[in-house]
Amino acid sequence: MTKQYNFAFFDEASKREIRRAIIKGIAVPGYQVPFASREMPIGRGWGTGGLQITLAIIGKRDVLKVIDQGCDESVNAVNIKKLIHATTDVEITEETKRASIIQSRHRIPEHPLEENQIMVLQVPTPEPLRHFEPREAATRVLHAQADYTGAWLNLFDQIVCFGTTTTGADHPVKVNQRYVMAPSPIPRFDNLKLHQSPNLTLFGAGREKKIYAVPPYTTVEPLDFKDHPFAVEDFRGKQCTICGASGVYLDETVDEESGKTLYRCNDTAFCTQQAALKGLI
């Protein structure tokens, strides 16, 4: 294909605009900054928000890791990586430790992140109050007034109906004791990783045209009630059948032959590393 595109796809003016939105997001943790989301060569709803952030901040010396559902080789991760690599030629890695930018959908890696790393999360629905109030103009006012009744009521309703909160991924969090934020559909298990994390986390919602951020060492608390404390997904007594790890997010699978339920690490790079350390592979 004849190359007719700039470094990192965008024209420089577009990158600058996205970086401005990022800086504003960092300055006001958890606040959703509207930005003029660009049209991308991949589908809206397929990670264009994360992709735009990555393309706007990436430099020639960056090392990139892209995961989808915890996996570096998942089809969509491969596709995004391919586009970024085709327009930047940056080094690609699967090793969490080596990456300077990690773009992800639905997971934060198991390996703890450090100060020199940037986590970029793809966000489908940035507005934590959207189920409560469908209108954007109205939810912006609710945020301005820190009126999070809707988010609390949602959880309260679930407790009344089911005796427990039934949020799956995307359990709302309060950032820096001010803004309630959708952490993107990372499992509740990963919510705790955002709290006081040494790395910068950026959130990009391409279709909804929002960017927001959790700067390093920021307080991030999942919304919960004293008598119904926040609980992560329950994997007690279960471990990865490949590397033996426990205390990590596990995928549930069925062994076709025996019909037994098996578990394995969702973070495939972590699993491979653990298995190698234990001499299993």
Binding site: G43, R44, G45, W46, T48, D68, Q69, G70, S74, V75, N76, R105, H106, R107, P124, T164, T165, T166, T167, G168, A169, D170, P185, I186, P187, R188, F189, R207, E233, D234, Y249, L250, D251, E252, N266
Partner: peptide, 21 residues
């Protein structure tokens, strides 16, 4: 079309989380 078609992407992590709830 983008958001409708994204439903074809794997949702294993979110579904596992929902399953747990």
């Amino acid at each position: 079309t983008g958001f409708i078609s994204h439903l074809k992407l794997p949702h294993y992590v979110t579904f596992q989380s929902k399953l747990s709830s």
